[in-house]
Design a protein around this nucleic acid. Sequence first.
DNA 1: TGATATCTTGATAATGATTCTCAAGTTCAA
DNA 2: TTGAACTTGAGAATCATTATCAAGATATCA
Lengths: 144, 144
Amino acid sequence: MLDEKDKSALHDFLLREGLKFSAQRLKVLEVVRRGARHLTAGEIYKHTQAKYPGIGYATIYRTLRLLCQAGLCVELKCEDGVCRYEYAGGAVHHDHLICTKCGRIVEVVDPEIERLQERLFKVNGFLPQRHRMELYGICNRCKK
Amino acid sequence: MLDEKDKSALHDFLLREGLKFSAQRLKVLEVVRRGARHLTAGEIYKHTQAKYPGIGYATIYRTLRLLCQAGLCVELKCEDGVCRYEYAGGAVHHDHLICTKCGRIVEVVDPEIERLQERLFKVNGFLPQRHRMELYGICNRCKK
DNA sequence: TGATATCTTGATAATGATTCTCAAGTTCAA
DNA sequence: TTGAACTTGAGAATCATTATCAAGATATCA
Ligand SMILES: [Zn+2]
Ligand SMILES: [Zn+2]
Ligand SMILES: [Zn+2]
Ligand SMILES: [Zn+2]
């Protein structure tokens, strides 16, 4: 169900941190890996229930945090106050273009913007860590 | 305490929307206008209490939403899940550079980035509405 | 292969920011 | 001045996320 690469990336991370492997953690990774992108914790909970009945909400949240630390997942704090998660194993950074009518999310990346962001960090004496850029507008389907 | 311009901008907005003027609304606007930038609703509540004892939390939240609609205030959804507000009467758009150690917030704007963002909207067939860009790093004071 | 120390889990309670409810108080156009 | 419509404050409700903790699973080492 899951690439060996993903599974061993999880294993390696757990070992490195002195943590333990579990079926639950693997199932959550599977859902994040195979499911749609930008799922909420609640959606991930439901999908994981199908593969592992009885799993609890707390485990979903704990595991998502773990996967983020392992670099296998990225958390996106949305304007509606709900976090969404997406698989990030070996994926490149990207930003989001979001339709305010239908909620459609398009992933974008502009190398020139990325470069200018780095410059902003430097000019202001900051050590760059990460950034978040969300562009809100109305998509072509909703413009009519 | 407040520019006539701010006061009448509030009045105009309320009139236009069929809403009513109140001392509470004026005081909240005053706090947002005169106080520090990027205050949380809780901080605005405390500051407003000093000027208008007895004001309730609900009124603070309701008024902040109103001021945002009126274009007098801008809401910033922060990573810690708490919203911060800043006066926006006639102010220009800006983005935020945030120190992950001390929480310091520097306001920045890069016209070139703004231009490229517009291009991203167009290229993807979106009608631009707004955007949010936050750069997270460690500021020079915290780098040591 | 056990014993065991440590980590993980699920149920549930707690948290904390924000929103809702509603009776009582205000505003303002007529 | 009057009254319909809007606001307010107190407290309850919401809702995503965290914390708690006893019971269960994992991995290490003899
Ligand atoms: Zn980017
Ligand atoms: Zn994405
Ligand atoms: Zn900008
Ligand atoms: Zn600002």
